[in-house]
Write a protein that binds this DNA or RNA. Structure first.
Lengths: 216, 216
DNA sequence: TTTTGTATAGGTGATTTTACCTACGCAAAA
DNA sequence: TTTTGCGTAGGTAAAATCACCTATACAAAA
């Protein structure tokens, strides 16, 4: 197998050089380019073939999250390894959402970096253990606040059925037919839902349903 | 400090006994009750004070996820440690969403179990490393499929503005006023969005926006 | 037993959305 | 230069939603 083509994106030259020296010692890898920000790496992606991009998160011009989104849209085959500092939990999450295949900390040693590169190059994910715990913490927090919503609002079984069908993009008439009730009743349930949930219209109902994972 | 009051919920007696013997060897813990399913532990919660519940996920009558939700609603101070087997990724996620403070595998040794109990009793989270990796994988998967949607559909900037306001529960008229355009134009954008996204109505638009994290 | 909650259904009328269609100016791309 | 995409705007008509209201039947809870 030929060398894995690596690109390094970080606004600090020292970081780039550090990573480069780590990788160049290792056979099987070739650093094909480096970039200082998201704009630059996008240009590089057009010019040449790249397998894996090691991407910093916070950068001027275009940050790693935006760059990752754009690159994964245009070149879904390019793998992206997020390079983060500790206490960047939220950013790391966004990198994953944007399409990164994993992350390592900047304090990572050579061994872990190489392992991470190999792993994601094989189309798998790699998540550095050191950051994983704190990310999971972040992950849990919003869920806790969700359940508070549910406490205030008691939605009846029937209303839930109606809401489900609303979320499934049915009209009131279709819902009425489905549930063997009158359109007026569906309308009544709908208005009760609007009032209970505190929504202005269908959009609010759907948002509520999805945010509270009522039908997932 | 007094003993930490533990409850064990699992439908298999052998599992309960195993955990009990692990914990009873350890000073500082007291097992105050055990239950076979969600219904039973709910009754127990009413009867006595409990600090931490070790909760199995799959159980007859009422499973651990439902039980966790109910308990966290009624008794938010009770901590719940999910007890899972491997390859229960989705269930584990749901336990966390339901309000569990952590999880350990059934194959866990005494040392890790005690550590997990201490950690979550101190109002922190504990996530067993062995399951964490696979959970993160699960977490990422839906994001990957999201970007596929985006590829097919190109939403223009203006359409995105309109969609954002739709999601924020504004009427077409309000959107028109906000953007200084005619209602008919808003309507045109809306119809283009419906067509591009493949939605039937507002519900579909909102679902699309939220699922693709267009405005979060 | 009375009250409360839920599901049902209707009246009326205003407002909003949806589904068709056409059309023009402008800028970027082919 | 022609074409394409985008944003703009309108006509018309049907369908759906929303906002008020009232009302009945039934079951569970107080």
């Amino acid at each position: 197998m030929s060398n894995i083509k690596i690109a390094i994106v970080d606004d600090h030259k020292i970081v780039r050089d550090g990573i480069m020296s780590l990788i160049e010692e290792e056979p099987g890898y070739k650093i094909v380019c480096e970039a200082k920000n998201g704009i630059q790496i996008l240009e590089e992606c057009e010019k040449q073939e790249i397998d894996v991009i090691i991407m910093d998160i916070t950068m001027p011009k275009m940050d790693g999250i935006e760059a990752t989104e754009t690159i994964k849209e245009k070149y879904p085959d390019i793998k992206i390894l997020a390079l983060s500092m500790l206490n960047e939990d939220q950013h790391i999450r966004n990198m994953i959402k944007a399409g990164a295949s994993g992350y390592v900390l900047k304090s990572t040693g050579k061994k872990e970096l190489i392992h991470a590169l190999n792993t994601i190059n094989e189309d798998q994910f790699y998540f550095s253990d050191e950051a994983t715990q704190s990310i999971l913490h972040e992950l849990v927090k919003p869920e806790v606040s969700k359940s508070k919503h549910n406490q205030n609002v008691h939605i009846t079984d029937r209303e839930l059925e109606v809401l489900k069908l609303i979320v499934e993009e049915h009209t009131n008439q279709e819902i009425a037919d489905e549930l063997y009730i009158s359109v007026r009743t569906v309308d009544a349930h709908r208005r009760n839902l609007l009032q209970k949930i505190g929504a202005k219209n269908t959009a609010g109902l759907v948002k509520y349903a999805l945010k509270n994972n009522l039908f997932s």
